[in-house]
Design a protein around this nucleic acid. Structure first.
Length: 340
DNA sequence: CCGATTCAAGCTATGCGGCT
DNA sequence: AGCCGCATAGCTTGAATCGG
């Protein structure tokens, strides 16, 4: 079954966690809520009216997706808070006030919860419109924030530059080790690099390029997220040491097939040692690429999870900026590094 | 007259069944 | 399937009623 908003929790969370797009969505939907405790709120009645559905339908959704709705901000007001809410309504919307002034408890939705309802309704025509509106705006915001293309969106977060610098150094150690400790062979670099990629994210360089629609001459590594870079660096660094040890033990260069065997042994140990960071890398790559780059890593499908609020901020929010800008801002740091 | 108790309203939560 | 209508229990609350 194809995943869409009505049947996938992760897809829904990935939209509701996108705080960057939320103000745009609120503007576009154009259904004004009542600002209570700094969030826009809607009563169940208002949702019925908005989506043209029965209250019973909303009840059923609330029951079936209890956790999801409490995350997206649905709550039942009683006591003190309900009194405050009523007072607010009395000032803002006397019609609504007359409907609810005597109720002892009242379920209220935040804007996110309102969208959440729209994502789950399969029958309502209005909900269908809302869903397509949501998707359009999410894509718009993404394109706008990413500057029209998402290929290098990985480079927009602050942690990227230090990771990329480290990676550069470790990569050199790795290729040096291949150079020094393995007999001359035209394919040795590519083959071993592919093995590293496959151990970490199950795809070789070609598969990865195809999934991200990279051109032949475009650098794979410059598209890696910070966490992927770190794991790849660690992995290559550790294997470089392994090559050196084995070559010194044998007191000669290794053949490429010896190197492959060595790698296979190493990979089993590395898998255990780096399990947590490898799993983390897989999950981040699969989830972020799906949301930010519209790229599906089929072999990592089980690793797809929801994108955190932090990620949306880091890649799309205020702190995010193009690599060029960040380099410009850090000019002094790089000068110092260079002069070292 | 006033606090306590009872009552009515109207929500939530849930089940059942019928419709498409 | 998914949606909706009806029925019912349980709750909170303000209004009405009661008793001293």
């Amino acid at each position: 079954m194809k995943k869409d908003l009505t049947n996938s929790v992760v897809e829904r969370r990935n939209i509701l966690n996108n705080n960057i797009a939320m103000p745009e969505l609120y503007k576009a939907i154009g259904y004004k809520g009542l600002k209570f405790e700094s969030k826009f709120r809607f009563t169940k009645n208002q949702l019925e009216y908005f989506y043209e559905i029965d209250s019973r339908t909303i009840e059923r959704l609330l029951v079936a997706h209890e956790d999801e709705f409490s995350k997206s901000g649905y709550e039942v007001l009683t006591g003190e808070r309900l009194r405050d809410f009523k007072k607010l309504i009395q000032e803002e919307d006397s019609n609504l006030y007359n409907n609810i002034n005597t109720v002892p408890s009242l379920g209220v939705f935040t804007f996110k919860a309102l969208l959440n309802v729209g994502m789950l309704l399969t029958g309502s025509e209005r909900a269908k419109q809302v869903r397509s509106q949501i998707l359009d705006i999410i894509i718009d915001v993404l394109n706008h924030k990413a500057g029209g293309h998402t290929k290098f969106i990985n480079q927009r977060e602050e942690a990227y530059i230090p990771a990329a610098l480290d990676e550069f150094i470790f990569r050199q150690k790795f290729t040096d080790a291949i150079d020094h400790f393995i007999e001359k062979n035209d394919f040795k670099y590519a083959q071993l690099t592919d093995k590293v990629y496959k151990s970490i994210f199950k795809e070789d360089a070609n598969e990865y390029k195809k999934i991200l629609k990279l051109k032949a001459n475009e650098s794979i590594r410059s598209t890696f997220y910070t966490e992927i870079l770190r794991v790849v660096s660690d992995y290559e660094n550790a294997f470089a040491k392994e090559l050196e040890r084995e070559s010194k033990k044998k007191e000669r260069k290794l053949t490429l097939s010896e190197a492959h065997h060595l790698f296979n042994d190493f990979a089993v140990r590395a898998e255990d040692m780096m399990e947590a960071s490898i799993e983390d890398a897989r999950s981040k790559m699969a989830s972020r690429d799906l949301v930010f780059r519209d790229a599906l890593h089929e072999k990592l499908e089980n690793y797809i999870t929801e994108i955190s609020l932090n990620d949306f901020n880091n890649f799309l929010g205020e702190q995010s900026m193009t690599l060029e800008k960040r380099l410009e801002q850090n000019k002094d740091v790089f000068k110092r590094l260079k002069n070292r």
